[in-house]
């Protein structure tokens, strides 16, 4: 079907990644778990994942990774 699923996945994780990173940066005190700013750390991970998905969707178009 005409929708490349990597677009919505990429967009969603980019959005959540930005949100978490931002929240962790602004509210450092409220983002602690075992002495780490886990929101900031994991937000960056999600952001990178989201951007990679978007990159794949933009470049690949019709050739998904393993098909």
């Amino acid at each position: 079907m005409g929708l490349d699923i990597r677009w919505p996945i990429g967009l969603m994780f980019t959005f959540i990644g930005v949100l978490l990173t931002g929240y962790g940066a602004i509210n450092s005190a409220g983002s602690q778990s075992l002495g780490m700013n886990i929101n900031l750390i994991w937000g960056v991970v999600l952001l990178v994942f989201g951007l990679l998905m978007l990159l794949g969707a933009a470049r690949g178009g019709k050739t998904p990774p393993s098909a």
Binding site: L19, Y23, S31, Q32, S33, I38, N39
Partner: peptide, 10 residues
Amino acid sequence: KYCPAGLLGL
């Protein structure tokens, strides 16, 4: 136990 606001939502 482990998730602060933010990660909890995730």
